[in-house]
Simulated assay, not measured.
Amino acid sequence: MSSWREMAARVLAMDADERPPAEYGLSPELTADLRQLQALLPPAKIANAAHWRPVVADALRVAREGWAAKAIGVGWSVHDLFGVGPRDEWEFSGLAVWLAGRPLVTINADYALAGGDDTLCSTFIRGGMGHGTHPNIAPVLLWDFGR
């Protein structure tokens, strides 16, 4: 059985050889939404505007590095990747909101692993607590939250 570091090295090597196109391997609509997100100012409804830019940077990195295309290819929704609760991130956190600057290591149909060389891996469980369906919370996409 391979360690997570060995798996990460294989994934990163594969990514380097298969660079995503300018559209990040995503639909033109989603690519346009991400470009719109990049230009948005921090939303007035968040308590600390300084938290907005890192979330946007993580969302763009997930797309740019090809993780979003891989995730969608194994069944993730756009809300799983770029969703947030309609009022704040405590209600619902998609992968981009949850990352908090950590690099992704791997992604499959059920979870994503994030971590670095000298940190433990953290697991984002798709559909897990705060990351999935909730009967009273309908997440919005970051570019809609930011309006």
Score class of each variant (00 low, 15 high):
64 R>L: 12
64 R>N: 11
59 A>H: 04
11 V>F: 01
7 M>W: 00
106 T>I: 01
51 H>V: 12
110 D>V: 05
7 M>V: 03
142 L>W: 12
64 R>E: 15
98 W>Q: 11
85 G>V: 02
68 A>F: 14
7 M>Y: 05
124 F>H: 09
58 D>W: 04
100 A>W: 06
45 K>P: 00
7 M>Q: 06
2 S>Q: 07
71 A>L: 01
99 L>I: 00
54 P>F: 12
6 E>W: 11
45 K>M: 15
8 A>L: 08
101 G>I: 13
51 H>Y: 13
128 G>M: 09
56 V>Q: 08
57 A>T: 15
32 A>T: 11
122 S>H: 06
138 A>M: 12
104 L>I: 02
122 S>G: 05
29 E>L: 15
114 A>H: 09
145 F>P: 04
22 A>L: 15
31 T>K: 10
36 Q>E: 15
17 D>V: 01
78 V>C: 09
76 W>I: 09
119 T>W: 02
89 E>S: 13
21 P>M: 04
67 W>S: 05
12 L>M: 04
61 R>L: 14
20 P>D: 09
46 I>Q: 08
81 L>S: 12
15 D>A: 14
92 F>I: 03
51 H>R: 14
77 S>D: 11
24 Y>H: 15
16 A>D: 10
78 V>I: 15
119 T>D: 13
50 A>W: 02
23 E>M: 10
95 L>N: 03
37 L>A: 10
134 H>R: 13
147 R>C: 09
91 E>S: 06
135 P>N: 11
86 P>W: 15
119 T>P: 08
71 A>R: 05
113 L>V: 10
27 S>R: 10
97 V>F: 06
98 W>D: 08
26 L>V: 09
78 V>D: 12
46 I>C: 08
128 G>L: 00
97 V>D: 03
85 G>K: 09
86 P>G: 14
119 T>I: 03
56 V>R: 07
128 G>R: 01
72 I>M: 14
52 W>M: 08
51 H>F: 12
98 W>P: 05
47 A>P: 00
114 A>T: 03
85 G>F: 04
140 V>W: 00
56 V>Y: 01
42 P>V: 11
4 W>L: 11
69 A>F: 07
53 R>D: 10
55 V>F: 08
